[in-house]
Design a protein around this nucleic acid. Structure first.
Lengths: 341, 341
DNA sequence: GCACGATGCCAATACGTATTAGCTAATACG
DNA sequence: CGTATTAGCTAATACGTATTGGCATCGTGC
């Protein structure tokens, strides 16, 4: 046993294929490199393809990435993957990335700091990152230097982005509740520096203002964008004296709406009889609850898909102008948690 | 402008650090390579570290991976990331992987086939993969050859794995319902070749048998492991003639239980008054529903964490014996969806 | 003063691929 | 027939890091 060099357990390389096909490694690379305009005779091409097949050759993307300075990987960072909305965004990214031959590295920030996560992505030589749910504050240039970035629902002068019509979302919710005749409204949502969330809130209040209505501060509940946040918000609202108690509440995030609904049901407050609730996102959970949640549908998958297309176009075509595109439309989905005042 | 070679936009390499510190690239690698027993004088070491800091040097993990034949990445593949149980498993993996310096590439199989996903992971030179929710059928050696693999809840002779006490889970559910005095029970769960799910079912039926009870086939509903699966199952059960209709149902997956609960509430069947429901998993959703779901808690994060530890031990220490470990205990969490018959 | 073992550092090479310059043989053109 | 041109292929190099064998240098012991 003179040499273990040709250990068959190791995956085949272009060198192995070349040896078997009786050509040089460079030729193998030309044939298998996908470059269709490479000058290779049909006969050689076929020999190489056959040899590769027989050896079960798989290109080593790590090596390829090293020389091409491209990893064909893109990172997606969100605050919390357990929020189904963000998972939907990631799913949208996945779909178009897969078609374009990119792998996506999803990650959230529950276990590590954003900086650390970005550094890890960078060290992996990701070609670009898509960020959703991070406010301008978190987007210090710090770790982002030298990366292609696409933002979701966060306008920026430095980086291109995609957005949904967040103002419209807030408006739709308000107009729906007003049309039902509600006069004592409430708002529950995160005190976030995330632009999209702020705009939902702004749209809601703009519609109220248009209707000549205002909202006393005790009916404006700032809570974390979670189920327990919603629980807390609604508990506080229900604890108000009857004359101030709202008859309807807009929750800027579906998870908050789910918590609010639960608080009502637990307290014996009929929904929508005594309290109407409107969410925003239209995550799958909305149709699992009883009654089903009235909410404003935000096309999360489509947001992710567009972000991915925008990023990949930049990557594939170095000088592509990242044209922003219109905000994606949202629409009201009336289900079971809203009714007349 | 003779050469753009030294473009400062490009990240610094060990060569750059070496030049600045006045040493060779090899020395830089020795110092920064983390190898603490490298023979380098304190003075040189400090010069290198300083230079690296000044240049903002970050090791290129792609290049490192190429030479070390290690990527410090592990893949996790599950059937469906939108099932929070699997996300919890992934989260557990993330946590211990991060500590050990590994990055994890989570992925599900909704957008691509398992084979394609595994091939993609392989091409990225992942050091190993953790699989959860795939039956022996899907685990043909096909794409797995030459990979370190750890399985979750799927015993195998070829690969090590971690498991929860799935039989115990089914038993606990059955015993709880029996203790409440229920005599007409039902089962709803996927017709899966996934071992863990089969064992939940087996444990349930074993406990029934111990109590001298059997289950007629019309009360055994095989449905997909989703909310709509649970909806369909419970609708069918509620459509049975009163004498055959169950008063309690064990759902092998929490999502199914959520669907079942919804079907009851929609049909005006009081829970737990007329129908008790027990789930299994204890995903966060269980506490969002009203009433809150009685369920069997399966330590998903811990499963993921153990799987990761098992895999990483094998990776770091080539000859480590993968000792299986006991199945993780489960426990019944009594909440609001179960009551006396 | 010399042999000897440490110590500190570096040159060279490898990892698996892409890419380019260039070589040979064949064809086109005058 | 001689010269351009082209097609088809290969040798060589680069990507950024880890690793190893070996070269100086320096004490140390005799």
């Amino acid at each position: 046993m003179p040499t273990r060099r040709s250990d068959s357990a190791r995956p085949a390389t272009t060198h192995d294929v070349a040896r078997r096909a009786g050509v040089s490694q460079a030729t193998v690379s030309l044939v298998l490199g996908g470059n269709p305009r490479a000058r290779v005779s049909a006969q050689t091409r076929e020999r190489v393809v056959r040899a590769a097949g027989e050896l079960g050759y798989r290109p080593n993307l790590v090596a390829r990435g090293l020389v091409q300075r491209k990893s064909y990987a893109i990172g997606v960072m969100v605050p919390d993957l357990s929020n189904p909305f963000f998972l939907d965004v990631v799913t949208g990214v996945q779909r178009v990335a897969a078609e374009a031959g990119y792998v996506v590295l999803p990650g959230d920030v529950r276990e590590v700091s954003p900086q650390r996560h970005l550094e890890a992505l960078q060290a992996r030589q990701v070609d670009g990152v898509i960020l959703d749910g991070f406010g301008a504050l978190a987007l210090q240039e710090h770790a982002l230097s030298g990366m292609k970035v696409v933002l979701v629902d966060e306008p920026s002068e430095r980086w291109p982005g995609v957005a949904s019509d967040a103002i419209g979302a807030g408006r739709l919710a308000a107009e729906h509740l007003l049309a039902l005749g509600h006069t004592r409204l409430a708002f529950a949502g995160p005190a976030s520096d995330v632009h999209g969330l702020r705009m939902r809130e702004r749209g809601f209040f703009a519609a109220l203002r248009d209707a000549g209505m205002t909202l006393p501060s005790e009916r404006l509940r700032r809570v974390p964008p979670t189920v327990s946040g919603g629980l807390a918000a609604m508990k506080a609202l229900l604890a108000l004296p009857p004359a101030q108690r709202p008859t309807a509440c807009f929750c800027a995030v579906d998870l908050v709406a789910a918590g609010a609904l639960k608080a009502c049901l637990t307290a014996g407050v009929a929904v929508p009889g005594m309290m109407s609730i409107v969410g925003c996102d239209d995550v799958e959970l909305a149709r699992v609850l009883t009654p089903e949640l009235t909410t404003v549908r935000v096309p999360a998958r489509e947001l992710g898909a567009r972000a991915a297309r925008l990023l990949i176009k930049q990557l594939d075509d170095e000088a592509a102008a990242p044209k922003p595109g219109k905000p994606l439309p949202v629409r009201l989905i009336v289900r079971g948690t809203t009714g007349p005042a």
